[in-house]
Simulated assay, not measured.
Amino acid sequence: MHLKTEDLIRLEIDFDSGVIPPPYSHMFKLKIGFGKNFLDTTLDLIYTDREELTEEEIFDEGFTTDDNFHFHGEIPKVWETPLKSLYAKSKWSNNKSNEDGGIRILAKDSHGKISRTVPLNQQEWQLFAQDYIQAIYESSKKERPLQLQYLIRENDKEIAIQLQVKFLLRNVEVSVNGEIKEGDWDNTKELLSYVFLPDYDYGKAQEQQPKKSGHFIECGDGFWHEMGKGVINIDDSFDAVTKIKNGFQKLI
């Protein structure tokens, strides 16, 4: 049953990673209440099935023994419209649960009606939930806003682009050679989807800003990578490196 979007007062997003092995396997529940001035939000994130792993095996994969996370607080109302829009356009499975993992939705409206459904557009819901959790991390100071730098040095010219992505506010700030302007959220999200696709060769990276000609990217960790040499496409059928170059050039 699909409730009327304008009557919604609460959404719960349940996720289970399914057959993914530990230490990556996890589940989370997002409870989001639509208040007057903010979204009343609770997140419980739990990593599962780790009892079969040693601490060393967990550390080797970049995790710790205390990765579970709980949050309760206020998320800005700017997230309400995109969430309700996603709910409104979604199509639903006849199943009440998803045995293979994925997203389940519980919706409650102002008339007391409750709907438990599985969305068919699983990827959209999972990507939205990831972004929303990133907003929670910023709100709780667990993580800072994402910052990227991109440097173009060619034809005796230098263009320095800085990109700051604030998930909490769904806001993008673009600086081109020190001139600051507001970026487009959806276009930036598309660019980010390309940025994290290639392979980054840290053996060829450098900590100082490059002085030679070329295109270079720094993904917030202090290491500069040269596009096409230190940033390499993993899939020959998809040229993510060119997508990244074109995306940053459009910001100029």
Rank of each mutant, 00 (worst) to 15 (best):
L8K: 04
I9Y: 03
R10W: 07
R10H: 03
L11D: 10
D14R: 14
F15Y: 15
D16L: 09
V19W: 02
I20P: 03
I20R: 12
P22E: 07
Y24C: 01
H26G: 02
M27F: 00
K29N: 08
L30H: 03
L30F: 06
L30A: 04
I32E: 01
I32V: 15
G33D: 05
G33W: 03
K36C: 00
K36Y: 01
N37R: 09
N37E: 13
F38I: 08
L39P: 02
L39V: 05
L43G: 13
L45Y: 09
I46A: 09
I46N: 12
I46H: 07
I46W: 00
T48E: 09
D49W: 00
R50F: 00
R50T: 06
L53I: 03
L53F: 09
L53T: 12
T54N: 10
E55N: 14
E56L: 01
F59K: 11
F59M: 06
D60Y: 04
F63M: 06
F63Y: 14
T64I: 09
T65E: 05
T65L: 06
T65H: 00
F69C: 09
F71G: 13
F71R: 05
H72R: 13
I75Q: 06
K77G: 05
K77H: 05
K77R: 09
V78Y: 04
E80Y: 00
E80T: 04
T81Y: 08
T81Q: 12
T81W: 07
T81V: 15
P82Q: 06
P82A: 12
K84S: 03
K84L: 15
S85A: 14
S85D: 14
Y87N: 07
S90I: 07
K91G: 15
K91R: 14
W92H: 07
W92M: 06
S93V: 02
K96S: 07
K96R: 15
